[in-house]
Amino acid sequence: MFQPVDHQKTAAAVVEQIEDLILKGVLQSGDKLPAERDLAEQLAVSRPVLRDALKILEDRKLIEARRGGEPSSRT
């Protein structure tokens, strides 16, 4: 489902990939994303880069972060 990201594209590429999965319906409202460590590994990015991408997605209201849990799709 997730593809490794070219490190030169960083957070923008992660945002684009997750956004695309949401728009295609692969990730639907209420779906939980993998744990941060697992998702960063699947995307082949650092956890800080992943956090930046998740923040952008949250600002765009595409995901909703929950305290003590993983972000979930909000479409």
Score class of each variant (00 low, 15 high):
Leu23Pro: 00
Pro4Gly: 00
Asp20Arg: 10
Glu70Gly: 05
Asp6Arg: 11
Gly25Gln: 10
Ser72Gly: 05
Ile18Val: 14
Val14Ala: 04
Thr10Asn: 10
Glu19Lys: 09
Arg51Pro: 13
Leu43Cys: 07
Glu41Pro: 07
Arg47Ala: 03
Ala40Trp: 11
Pro48Lys: 06
Arg67Gln: 09
Ala12Phe: 10
Ile63Thr: 01
Ser73Gln: 01
Ser29His: 13
Asp59His: 04
Glu41Ile: 12
His7Ser: 09
Lys61Gln: 11
Leu62Met: 13
Gly69Cys: 03
Ile22Met: 08
Glu70Arg: 11
Arg47Tyr: 00
Leu57Lys: 04
Leu27Pro: 02
Asp6Gln: 12
Phe2Trp: 14
Arg60Val: 00
Leu43Gln: 03
Val26Pro: 09
Asp6Gly: 03
Ser73Asn: 01
Glu70Phe: 06
Ala35Asp: 14
Ala40Met: 14
Arg67His: 06
Ser72Cys: 09
Leu62Gln: 10
Val26Lys: 15
Ile56Phe: 06
Leu62His: 01
Met1His: 02
Ser72Val: 14
Leu57Asp: 03
Ala40Lys: 10
Leu23Asp: 10
Asp38Thr: 15
Glu58Gly: 02
Arg37Ile: 13
Ala65Val: 11
Ala44Met: 01
Asp31His: 13
Gly69Ile: 01
Gly69Ser: 10
Thr10Gly: 07
Gly68Lys: 00
Leu33Met: 11
Ile56Asn: 02
His7Gly: 08
Arg51Val: 13
Glu41Leu: 15
Val5Asn: 07
Val15Leu: 14
Leu33Tyr: 14
Thr75Lys: 08
Ser46Tyr: 08
Val45Thr: 02
Thr10Val: 07
Leu21Arg: 05
Glu70Tyr: 06
Arg51Asp: 15
Ser72Asn: 05
Asp38Gln: 12
Glu16Val: 14
Pro34Asp: 01
Lys9Arg: 09
Leu21Thr: 01
Ala12Asp: 12
Ala44Glu: 03
His7Asp: 06
Val15Ala: 14
Lys9Trp: 06
Gly25Met: 14
Arg74Asn: 12
Asp6Cys: 09
Glu36Arg: 12
Ile18Glu: 04
Thr75Ser: 04
Lys24Phe: 08
Leu21Gly: 02
Arg60Leu: 04
Glu70Asp: 03
Val45Cys: 03
Gly25Pro: 12
Ile18Arg: 05
Leu39Ser: 10
Gly69Met: 05
Lys61Gly: 02
Leu39Gln: 05
Ala35Glu: 15
Leu23Met: 05
Gly25His: 07
Pro48Tyr: 09
Gln3Phe: 11
Arg66Pro: 03
Arg60Ile: 00
Arg60Ala: 01
Lys61Trp: 03
Glu19Gln: 08
